[in-house]
């Protein structure tokens, strides 16, 4: 699943942060990157939607309803990956006192929560035609719901502490405890699920993946991933301005843009 791949990717990310550690340099770098990332995101979305909604043939079992998968699955993956990335940023910020990492963690949370919410809504929209009920206590949807509560908890703690440094470090500890608990929650929910509905069709056993389905899924996944990085950079730039407002370079920047 996404967690372990996420950790390897994220350590490269953390080395990248150390290289561009100073918020000032990262602010300028992010400024240059955002337009490119936005362009790639838009392109990927257009291609993905075309492939997913038009090019891919309907499934013999679920008909066209399965196309919801191209939105549901990428969001589910991103919701998990975003939490791992958020916890890694938070841990980096807390352990090595890297302010930029704190900001990146804080900027990730709302995006991760949005991915989780989208995964939940699209999941239930997919469940309705399949099983006739809006909410299916399916293992993946249930652990997705709990992940959503973890995000809300993280953001609530972050918002209720005034001192930005304490807010960052306190929510970092919560994120670390959270990321340790995610596998436990995940498997206990799966275990709980097998106890109660051993036989019935669940969302996890989605239609057999043909190549025609895999391509749109991959494209849409990358689309949402680039969307995450684009908006992460946009959010972190304003976070940098807020937290670095007393530094000279921000004063000059704000002053120059009369």
């Amino acid at each position: 699943m996404g967690e372990f791949g996420g950790f390897a990717g994220v350590s490269r990310l953390i080395k990248f942060i150390h290289k561009y550690g100073a918020p000032k340099r990262f602010y300028r770098l992010a400024g240059r990157l955002v337009p490119w990332f936005a362009g790639v995101t838009a392109l990927l979305f257009v291609v993905g939607l075309y492939l997913g909604l038009y090019w891919a043939p309907p499934d013999y079992q679920q008909g066209d309803a399965y196309r919801i998968m191209f939105v549901h699955v990428p969001n589910a993956w991103m919701s998990m990956m975003a939490y791992v990335i958020m916890a890694s940023f938070a841990a980096t910020g807390y352990i090595w006192n890297v302010r930029l990492a704190d900001m990146l963690a804080k900027a990730t949370a709302p995006l991760g929560a949005s991915f989780t919410l989208t995964a939940l809504v699209t999941g239930s929209l997919w469940g309705k035609p399949m099983w006739g009920t809006w909410w299916v206590w399916d293992a993946r949807l249930t652990s997705e719901l709990i992940l959503f509560f973890l995000y809300v908890g993280y953001m609530a703690l972050q918002a209720s502490i005034d001192d930005p440094r304490r807010a960052a470090h306190a929510s970092a500890i919560l994120a670390i405890v959270g990321v340790v608990n995610i596998p436990i929650i995940h498997y206990s929910v799966y275990w709980w699920h097998t106890l109660h509905q051993p036989a019935s069709l669940t969302l996890t056993s989605q239609p057999k993946i043909y190549i025609t389905m895999l391509i749109p899924l991959i494209v849409m996944s990358f689309a949402f991933m680039f969307f995450y990085f684009t908006m992460l950079l946009v959010r972190v730039r304003s976070e940098i301005l807020v937290r670095e407002q007393r530094t000279d370079w921000v004063r000059k920047l704000v002053g120059s843009k009369q």
Binding site: L49, L53, P58, G63, D64, A65, R67, I68, V71, H72, N75, T118, V121, T122, L125, W126, K128, P129
Partner: peptide, 14 residues
């Protein structure tokens, strides 16, 4: 294929 409401509301929400 008859699932217009579900597919479009899913994509719409996303």
């Amino acid at each position: 294929g008859g699932f217009a409401f579900y597919v479009w509301s899913a994509y719409g929400f996303a």
